[in-house]
Simulated assay, not measured.
Amino acid sequence: EHGEPTGLLLENALIAAAGKLPAPTPEEVRASLVEAIAEYNKQGFTTFQDGGLGINGDAAVFLKPYMELAREGRLDARAYLQFLPEEFDRLSALGAWGIGTDFLKIGGVKFFTDGSIQGFTGALLEDYHTRPGYRGDLIWDTDAIDAIVMKYHCMGIQVAVHTNGDAASEAVIRAFEKAVARCPRTDLRHMLVHAQLVSDDQLRRMKACGVIPTFFSRHIEVWGDRHAALYLGPERTARMDPAGSAARLGMPFALHVDTPVLPVTALGSMHAAVNRVSAGGVLFGADQRITPRQALEAYTTNASLCCGGEADRGRIEPGRFADFVLLDKGIEAVEPDHIRDVKVRMTICGGRIVYQG
Rank of each mutant, 00 (worst) to 15 (best):
D312Y: 14
R185G: 09
P213Y: 04
G357T: 03
K64W: 05
Q288L: 02
G350L: 08
S304E: 08
K151M: 06
Q288Y: 02
H2G: 06
T265P: 11
A167Q: 10
M240H: 01
G224C: 00
E27D: 14
S199G: 05
Q294G: 02
A254N: 09
I353L: 10
R90I: 11
R204G: 00
V159I: 10
E1W: 05
V264K: 13
V211C: 02
G98L: 04
Q356E: 15
L327N: 06
C154G: 07
K207E: 12
G268T: 00
R352L: 03
A333D: 15
H190Y: 03
D323P: 04
V325M: 09
G98I: 06
D58G: 02
D76G: 15
A70Q: 04
P242Q: 06
C183Q: 11
L33G: 02
L63A: 04
A181M: 12
V61A: 00
I148M: 11
R131T: 05
L125R: 11
A246M: 11
W140Q: 07
A93D: 13
G107L: 00
Y128I: 03
C307K: 04
R276P: 00
A298F: 07
A18E: 14
R185C: 11
A322I: 05
D76R: 15
Q202V: 06
R313K: 15
L197I: 04
Y299I: 07
L81F: 10
G98N: 05
R131L: 14
E297H: 13
K178S: 11
P5C: 04
D127E: 15
I117T: 13
E332I: 00
P242Y: 03
R135M: 06
A298G: 07
E126Q: 14
R131V: 07
G268L: 02
I331K: 01
A18H: 13
S32C: 09
D127R: 08
V325T: 15
D258V: 01
R131P: 00
V34E: 08
Q158C: 06
L192I: 08
N41K: 00
G285D: 02
L230C: 07
K151P: 02
H194K: 12
P213R: 07
R74G: 02
G308L: 11
I173V: 15
G330K: 09
D127F: 08
G233P: 05
T186H: 06
F48E: 08
G156Q: 12
E332T: 05
P213H: 10
E297Y: 13
A36H: 07
Y231C: 03
A179F: 09
E11N: 14
H271P: 07
L8G: 03
A60D: 10
E126C: 04
A243V: 06
D323M: 05
L326C: 09
G280N: 07
C349G: 08
L203C: 09
E1T: 09
G285K: 02
V277P: 01
S217C: 14
E317D: 14
D337V: 11
T113V: 15
G73I: 09
R30I: 05
R74E: 15
I173T: 07
H162Y: 12
M270K: 02
L262R: 09
V149D: 02
G319T: 05
L124D: 01
A322D: 07
F321M: 10
D328I: 08
A31E: 15
G281P: 10
F112T: 08
A17I: 01
V334K: 02
